[in-house]
Amino acid sequence: MNAIGKKKAVPILSVRDLKVHFTLSGTGLFGKERKLKAVDGINFDLFPGETLGIVGESGCGKSTLGRAILQLIPPTDGQVIWLGRDIVGAPHSAMQPLRRDLQIIFQDPLASLNPRMTIGEIIAEPLVTHKADLGKEEIKARVKRMMARVGLLPQMINRYPHEFSGGQCQRIGIARAMILEPKLIICDEPVSALDVSIQAQIVNLLQELQREFDLSLIFISHDLSIVRHICHRILVLYLGNVMELADRDSIYAAPKHPYTKALISAVPIPDPEIERNKERIVLTGDLPSPTNPPSGCVFRTRCPFAKDVCATDIPTVDTINDHHQVACHFHERM
């Protein structure tokens, strides 16, 4: 499985200059309306069978980006090109058949399952919605097969979500996402609510399914060690803007953006010798309010390398080589 080798292939998903702005009504009677730029002009491609990691702190717009791709949140501007067709603003009837191939897995596994439905009904819902002509028996058989595939006992089909553990609930969520054999699954922090011991099981399950069904994954996370484990390419977001987009190996070996450097240097390394001696960049300050982002480079308020030009000029996303893009005025020196 080599993502770089696949780069010659046609992307199944292209996101072009995607923006999602929310209007917040002002406080008080004459309060000014404020714009929240959750996602502000993002570009990337996703290739078949690839896993793209989207990382960033909470509040950087990564979940919004995932939902905007699925049109669960209407984008303000830009294009989401799915299999050659722009789906932004597509009417419900046009979106309906595409939903078969686009699925999502959520962060809170229990909250993503309707507590009043049996897990058989939950997993069957996409089938009932898209392939109602299959008939009851066939749907049930497929649900049981998928349950076995994701590691659930098929005889649990009539149980309810609250009777399962968090990890099992996430398997139910994965079974529901997989039952139509989609082409893309957006995983929105799928393991961050789970125990560490279970995280690995779920991540491995996702990888197995990816290989088996040639699935593309968008893996949203704030945990860089998991992202490193599962993703082929990584997109670093900060305040709704792309900071860096690169292949896994090149981003971990040679991060070009100060923000990426800081994130990577914060990940503990199991070897105490290396851990002690590694260069560490500590971020000071808090994430600025997304309603009032800094001028120029959005990262400048916390960037240890910021110069005057960073406050005035917005850095362009420069392409360093085939598989590395970065948005920083001084990336050559990093």
């Binding site: 939902r67 699925l70 669960l72 979106m95 309906q96 939903r99 078969r100 686009l102 699925q103 999502i104 959520f106 962060q107 809170d108 909250a111 993503s112 399952l113 309707n114 819902e125 996409p126 919605t129 898209h130 969520g173 529901r176």
Partner: peptide, 13 residues
């Protein structure tokens, strides 16, 4: 606002 409603939307219910 719960996620299972969002999941249903994503499925196209």
């Amino acid at each position: 606002r719960r996620e299972f409603i969002e999941a249903a939307h994503a499925t196209g219910v």
